[in-house]
Nucleic acid binder design. Structure first.
Lengths: 144, 144
DNA sequence: ATAATAAAGGATAATTTTGTCCTCTATTAA
DNA sequence: TTAATAGAGGACAAAATTATCCTTTATTAT
């Protein structure tokens, strides 16, 4: 479904978001240990996310990654996915055709449209605050 | 969503299925030209599909690939996807966790379940005959 | 039997994705 | 101003996916 980058990225963002509700910055080491991801690779992903503005970072002692509290209700899961995987997952043809649309559909076009709409809708309606709220229940986890 | 192998494989299977309704065998060259896929790579994919039994082949002149007519109503899209991409797309965690289930869910587990069920259902309810029927309408295409 | 056709299969190459390592820069406290 | 901490960024490496090439095997018609 998603690339490894996107999987790690989403897990990292959810972890950072959770900590940010308590105004806690988190270091790369803490993040990669908490979400069980390769550290250096995770660093690259976080670079993309800070460049895109969804995640903030500060260098030096007491530095780390965080997300501005006021942004938690506005950042959608789809924002993160778009940065890391583009939006071919929403728009691309299930059979990999370049031109596949209502007028020139592949034989599965109308069947895939529904599924993609579902996915798109789920990712666009869920904000970081909404997901973080769920994470207060301790049945949810981000590793293994 | 799917790997390139799976995209080419599905396109090839749909093309072969269509021709098979008219008892026509099709050569690799015809297939790869008709679905606009790399020929040698498509050959490898077809090897997997013949080994799995969903596609038949015969060597020599007048040979080629075909699907037994009586199998068209029983072969589901999910069968082809399973051969080429496995079924991690149905069972895998959206965030890439190894252990993610009802009891130990990732924070997005219950949201992803619905989407995966949708996809699974679509692929399992659509047989080759059903899709081939649609393909009689000439708005549908398999290339570009 | 021979030539032609077409898939099967092994070896290899190119590309993309995933992952690591090392140095540079910024920040903080002492 | 120095030492320690932590992200940024460039270069490189490993692995997986995608793709090609060439030889072998099977089948058919002549």
């Amino acid at each position: 479904m998603f690339s490894k980058s996107c999987e790690y990225g989403l897990r990292a963002v959810l972890f950072i978001a959770k900590q940010s509700t308590a105004d806690t910055k988190v270091s790369l080491t803490t993040i990669s240990e908490s979400i069980d991801s390769p550290q250096a690779f995770t660093a690259k992903i976080l670079q993309q996310l800070t460049k895109s503005g969804f995640v903030q970072s500060s260098k030096g002692p007491y530095g780390g990654f965080f997300i501005e509290k006021e942004n938690l209700p506005t950042i959608k899961l789809s924002d993160i996915v778009s940065v890391l995987d583009g939006d071919s997952i929403y728009t691309g043809c299930g059979l990999g055709l370049h031109q596949c649309n209502e007028k020139e559909p592949c034989p599965l076009h109308f069947k895939f449209v529904k599924i993609r709409e579902n996915l798109k809708n789920m990712l666009e309606t869920n904000t970081l605050s909404m997901v973080v709220k769920d994470m207060n229940s301790d049945i949810f986890h981000l590793k293994i």
